[in-house]
Design a protein around this nucleic acid. Structure first.
Lengths: 80, 80
DNA sequence: CCATGGCCCGATTCTAATACCGGGATACCA
DNA sequence: TGGTATCCCGGTATTAGAATCGGGCCATGG
């Protein structure tokens, strides 16, 4: 009865997700990207830095929208 | 400084997500689907019944995998 | 009648995601 | 030097997701 702590595999997947999003953001500023996606800049920063292993689905979807990323491609790339 | 409560719009989007997943599951049993996706049956039930407004990205991705759904299509359909 | 299977619900537990603040480091330019 | 911009970090606060337990309901079949 209890939420389990994240496994190392989940942590690593979160780090791959963050790295992928940061690459996809390219030259755009973190602040502008966050505002466009309507998420807090802190949230985007934490996701990009890999400190949030399992972000909410709507959060990732909104960011992927702004960055013109396919969610299926993102999932396929980080899920190993 | 403080996580905001879910807005009615977010709640409704969660309900659309749940309904969509339930339709896509079709005849398959909830238990089998949950086990295949490696999520708790309770978690799947809560998502399908719309009581979890913003599930984790990996959770939804794993379920979509099992149900042969495109994440992009899911997002496009529930996000209005 | 009772067992089984499928689905649902409430309560509980505990970690994690989201969010804001203050501060710091860096770089660039006037 | 001072100003601006960007990003990072630590701390703190609060809601919410994930999971288990225990029980209930409704079929179907023994």
């Amino acid at each position: 009865m209890v939420r389990l702590p994240h496994t190392p595999a989940e942590v690593e997947r979160g780090q791959r997700l963050g790295a992928l999003l940061r690459r996809a953001r390219g030259e755009r500023s973190m602040l502008e990207t966050a505002l466009d996606a309507r998420v807090s800049p802190e949230t985007l920063r934490k996701i990009e830095s890999g400190r949030v292993a399992t972000p909410a689905f709507p959060t990732i979807a909104a960011i992927a929208d702004v960055l013109d990323l396919s969610l299926d491609a993102v999932w396929a790339e980080i899920n190993r």
